[in-house]
Design a protein around this nucleic acid. Structure first.
Length: 205
DNA sequence: AAAGCGCCCAACCGCCGGGGC
DNA sequence: GGCCCCGGCGGTTGGGCGCTT
């Protein structure tokens, strides 16, 4: 992708965190013109960003229907079921979780669930190398979820986790549904999506 | 109080497949 | 058929933040 910015004009391209101004420009532009071709959109809106970057920003953060933070136990369960079925097909999984993005699910998986699986695997390997320490013989048939392979095969929440109204994993106290905090080139800027959308409303968009 | 460390997530990168010319 | 451009996807990373020591 991004094969080369259209030969003729080597425009400077901004990278890194989006500023509130950029967010507003993008939101305004899409509100007025729709999504269209992202590279054109970036140019037409006057954003010094790649189309790809605009698309990502919109889909993962700015879309009005995007939900962030506070993944519920039900969602966690669903993620695990779907991941057991499809593997790392994040976008496919995300389609079954309204308002969730593939990026968020991927991050969630890697930071929470994956970590948990790794712990299980570690426990298993220490168990295998020191079975006596654990008071009984290592029997893979008895430890479906403790062997890395067995765990991966059988981590379907139905078989491996106790669920219901219970958290499948100790869900860390989620950070606030993130009031967005951005360090905007030397002057700190704090805003939330609510702020941005209410500004939109004020602008009559 | 401050230094160190780990967690989390936004954003980037690279690859791939599809569509148009 | 080959090239170019684009969107989409999964993997990776950099930096902010909070907790611990």
């Amino acid at each position: 992708m991004d094969k080369k910015p259209c030969k003729s004009q080597e425009v400077e391209v901004r990278k890194g965190p989006w500023t509130m101004e950029e967010d507003l420009i993008l939101i305004n532009y899409i509100a007025n013109h729709g999504e269209g071709v992202w590279n054109n959109l970036a140019k037409a809106a006057g954003l010094k960003r790649t189309g790809k970057s605009c698309r990502l920003r919109w889909l993962n953060y700015l879309r009005p229907d995007v939900r962030r933070g506070n993944i519920t136990p039900e969602e966690q369960l669903l993620i695990m079921e779907l991941h057991a079925k499809w593997g790392n097909r994040w976008s496919k999984i995300a389609k079954h979780l309204p308002g969730r993005t593939d990026n968020e699910i991927k991050n969630y998986w890697r930071t929470r669930i994956q970590k948990h699986i790794n712990k299980q695997a570690e426990m298993y390997s220490s168990h295998v190398s020191n079975p006596e320490l654990h008071g009984h013989q290592a029997s893979t048939s008895q430890l479906p979820c403790n062997s890395p392979a067995g765990f991966m095969e059988t981590y379907s929440p139905i078989s491996s986790f106790n669920h219901g109204n219970v958290e499948l994993f100790p869900v860390q106290p989620q950070q606030q549904p993130q009031q967005h905090v951005v360090n905007q080139s030397n002057n700190e800027n704090y805003w939330s999506m609510e702020d941005i959308w209410s500004m939109q409303l004020l602008n009559g968009e």
